[in-house]
Computed example of a mutant assay.
Amino acid sequence: MIENTCKSLAERLEAKRVDGGLVDIKFYIKPYSGCELQDIYDEVDALLNAVDDPSRVEDFAFGDRRAS
């Protein structure tokens, strides 16, 4: 199950990179927090579901520049 979940998450993030311009994403997990790996996948999945819902997302400009 975990391997399938991980692969699905990797594919989902890759699609965001290709289609949506995702540059970077980080998840900070406290070591020894007592959570199971599946709990982490579930939380990431919930976060990505929220981001995919346009009514729950707004643009945020960092004011940084990217050279083309």
Rank of each mutant, 00 (worst) to 15 (best):
M1W: 02
I2D: 04
E3Q: 14
E3W: 03
T5P: 01
C6A: 15
C6Q: 13
C6I: 14
C6P: 01
C6Y: 09
K7V: 02
S8N: 11
L9S: 00
L9F: 00
E11L: 03
R12K: 06
A15T: 06
A15L: 06
A15K: 06
K16A: 10
R17W: 03
V18C: 04
V18K: 08
V18S: 08
D19C: 03
D19F: 05
D19N: 12
G21K: 00
L22C: 01
L22M: 04
L22H: 04
L22F: 00
V23G: 07
D24E: 11
D24P: 02
D24L: 09
I25D: 02
I25R: 05
I25L: 06
K26P: 03
F27C: 10
F27I: 12
Y28I: 00
K30S: 07
K30V: 05
P31G: 11
P31M: 07
P31D: 10
P31S: 13
Y32L: 12
Y32V: 07
S33D: 06
C35L: 14
E36A: 15
L37A: 12
L37G: 04
L37E: 09
Q38K: 13
Q38M: 13
Q38S: 15
D39Q: 12
D39L: 04
Y41N: 06
Y41C: 10
Y41L: 08
D42V: 11
E43P: 01
E43M: 07
E43F: 03
E43R: 09
E43G: 08
V44D: 00
V44S: 01
V44I: 13
V44E: 00
D45E: 14
D45A: 08
D45Y: 01
A46M: 07
A46V: 06
L47H: 14
L48R: 05
L48M: 04
N49E: 15
N49W: 05
V51F: 13
V51N: 09
V51I: 13
V51T: 11
D52K: 11
D52G: 14
D52H: 07
D53Q: 00
D53K: 01
D53F: 02
P54Y: 08
P54L: 05
P54R: 07
S55T: 12
S55P: 04
R56T: 12
V57M: 02
V57C: 03
V57Y: 04
V57H: 02
V57D: 02
E58K: 11
D59L: 12
F60A: 05
F60G: 03
F60R: 01
A61C: 08
F62N: 11
G63I: 01
D64R: 13
D64V: 13
D64A: 13
R65I: 14
R65M: 12
R66A: 14
R66C: 13
R66L: 15
A67K: 13
A67Q: 15
A67Y: 08
S68W: 06
